[in-house]
Design a protein around this nucleic acid. Structure first.
Lengths: 198, 198
DNA sequence: GCTAGATTTCAACAACGGATGAAAAACTCT
DNA sequence: AGAGTTTTTCATCCGTTGTTGAAATCTAGC
């Protein structure tokens, strides 16, 4: 093709971002190469560096979410604690089932498993930001443990349904799943943690 | 040091295995290099290949579990379905809290997130072997969905407590956690999946 | 049309990773 | 003691990766 700018408006920056999101979601941070992203975007590898500098900042740019989950959580928390389990389950599934938000999240989780920087990213974000806020809304001596139990259940669904795609969980109906999860979350949030408490 | 065999009995093969387990558990398959394993084992990189051939078979050897979880599950399943949630939760935590079995499992999960071969390994093993057996013990039209819900909850605990080490889940007491999880698992196994079923 | 800036490829480098072949040293068995 | 086997390092190969510098081509403002 030869060097030099192409005629017309350039979509390269966006092509690269989309290709990067797909790669990171499928192969994680370490398993994704700048060159492979460039091939997917039909672009030279140097262009990736021209737009984004280093691989790490490309990752950061690609993992930027269209919605801020902390805001979604804040919205869910305003309506009190009574139906919280149900509303939480539905909001969670809605975000993850949306490809625009789901792909970066899958990439983040995949990368967090084997890349320290991504793990820190996820921990600070999900841990400090979201779990702390959830625990703050609870008013219970074991609020933090309750919040992490909720987090563990949702993380498990994220792994099984969206990352590993285990059937029939991966294809399960949105409502069916929400109904199954809601009582679990509600018990972790406000119910008796151990049967002997009753 | 110079080439040639060292005096006395050699522990190198085992040193390499232990170093590999630790590396795979911390950095996953892709993030672990044969050279780093060799350094940890205080051995030349070529020796790793001498003993284990390829990196993939080193991984397979390092991920071999001291106990077969499928057997543990079979044992748990013999005593009927009444207290199954409680027994399942305890057996799960017992295995993962044991370092000898826990390290390979953490390595497997970490690697599964970003390495296709490890993902297949985990899927075939946990999916076909364990979830199918669990579903088979259930006698319910939605047995498979129930089994994967149990799997998702346990996978979430594995990720949060052992892989990402999110507090206070990571340091939570064994019994406290088992008590909190047992009702969830029991409901997924034999309870009403959706509140409207009642 | 000229000039400044933006976009694009090419070529290359330095580091790293998995893997191999050869040679050296120790052990085993007769 | 000698032959064969096992363990060990060294040197090296070859492919891959992140990254950079230079040059070429297009667009925009004057």
């Amino acid at each position: 093709m030869g060097p030099g700018r192409r005629a017309g408006r350039s979509t390269s920056r966006n092509d690269i971002l989309e290709a990067a999101r797909a790669r990171f979601a499928r192969h994680g941070y370490v398993g994704t190469t700048v060159r492979a992203v460039a091939v997917d975007a039909r672009v030279d590898a140097a262009l990736v560096h021209y737009f984004f500098g280093t691989k790490t900042s490309l990752f950061a740019a690609a993992m930027a979410l269209p919605v801020n989950p902390a805001d979604v959580l804040a919205g869910v928390l305003t309506d009190g604690v009574e139906d919280l389990g149900e509303r939480l389950a539905r909001a969670f599934l809605r975000i993850w089932d949306d490809p625009a938000a789901g792909a970066p999240l899958v990439g983040l989780v995949r990368s967090a498993a084997s890349h320290d920087e991504a793990a820190t990213m996820l921990r600070e974000f999900a841990g400090q930001e979201m779990l702390a806020r959830l625990a703050g809304a609870l008013d219970d001596p074991r609020a933090e443990l309750r919040a992490t139990l909720v987090g563990a259940q949702l993380l498990g669904v994220a792994m099984g349904r969206y990352v590993l795609r285990i059937e029939p969980l991966a294809s399960a109906n949105h409502d069916t799943l929400a109904s199954a999860l809601a009582p679990t979350l509600q018990r972790y949030l406000t119910g008796e943690l151990s049967p002997r408490d009753a």
